Amino acid sequence: MKLSDQIISTAKETISNEADAIANLENFIDEEFTKAVEIIYKSEGRVVVTGIGKSAIIANKIVATLNSTGTPSIFMHAADAIHGDLGIVQNDDIVICISKSGTSPEIQVLVPLIKNFNNTLIALTGNRESFLGKEADFVLNCYVEKEACPNNLAPTTSTTAQMVIGDALAVCLLNLRGFSSKDFAKYHPGGSLGKKLYLRVSDITSQNMIPQVSPDTDVANAIIEISEKMLGVTAVLENDEIVGIITDGDIRRMLKDHQEIKGLKAKDIMSENPKTIEQDTLAVEALDVLEKHQISQLLAVENGKYAGVVHIHNLIREGIL
């Protein structure tokens, strides 16, 4: 077998094995899972997620997901917990302990301490009969038959299963809280994701100049207005009402159709009934309109009055596209 064929075969087998294991997790979503979700939902404290080794890495990811979807959470490393960090756990907190085997030495030391504090303990483990599984108040079963590792040693499928159960937990809580896209935006203000959720047309137009001419403006001055305002477009206004738009494309078509531009007015080359968008509309919706109509600019309006221009380059710069 060629090396490339061997690589492809191994990769596909890994994905297939993990996919089968993840699909099997549906069989473990039971009444105990429901009770665990409910007790977190009703809790006035935080969720403290702990683990060691690869499970600690998964714990960090689950904490990040819970925090970003409305469930206050914090990570506590199991090894550090038994050397002072146990003070992280407060009276009303719920502790989720992640361990594939449920029998590691650190877990066996940590679990009785948590139980002594009378905190609810939820186990996320692949072994219900382990020390952790038996001591926990609730068990979230993430059992996998084997790892993707050919030696069945390196945590691969098992850590994927842990993450999936964590995601299922977070999404259940999200739904119970009625967590909306507006809530999501509050926790994700940075990056393109956040901007898609909160950036509005008015935030774009406020950064741009506002090109405008009248219907009787001569074409030469209309071209100057388009050039100076650097948006490749100008609105045509009459009595403060939008009656048309002139784009770079209109200018090119005019030059193609007319040998002489002297005497031509804005009204002679403008396009009537231009596409507009309200100032308080999300910027990502402006992108949808631009793409639908295959145009580069939109005129923004506020209370029916011209307010500025949104250019596709603005959206690219903001990371919306």
Rank of each mutant, 00 (worst) to 15 (best):
2 K>E: 13
12 K>I: 13
18 E>C: 11
36 A>N: 00
37 V>N: 00
41 Y>N: 12
44 E>C: 02
45 G>T: 07
46 R>P: 00
46 R>N: 10
49 V>L: 10
55 S>K: 05
60 N>L: 11
65 T>N: 11
76 M>Q: 04
84 G>D: 12
84 G>P: 00
92 D>I: 08
94 I>Q: 00
100 K>A: 10
100 K>H: 14
101 S>I: 00
105 P>L: 14
106 E>L: 07
109 V>Q: 14
112 P>Q: 09
112 P>I: 02
113 L>E: 15
114 I>W: 00
116 N>W: 13
119 N>S: 05
123 A>D: 06
127 N>M: 07
130 S>Y: 07
135 E>M: 08
135 E>C: 06
137 D>F: 06
142 C>G: 06
143 Y>L: 11
144 V>K: 06
148 A>Y: 00
156 T>E: 02
169 L>F: 05
176 L>S: 03
180 S>V: 07
181 S>P: 01
199 L>V: 08
227 S>F: 10
228 E>K: 15
230 M>I: 15
250 D>N: 15
256 K>E: 14
267 K>P: 03
267 K>T: 04
276 T>Y: 03
279 Q>A: 14
279 Q>D: 06
279 Q>V: 10
289 V>C: 06
289 V>F: 08
298 L>Q: 03
298 L>I: 11
306 Y>G: 07
311 H>Q: 07
314 N>P: 01
319 G>L: 13
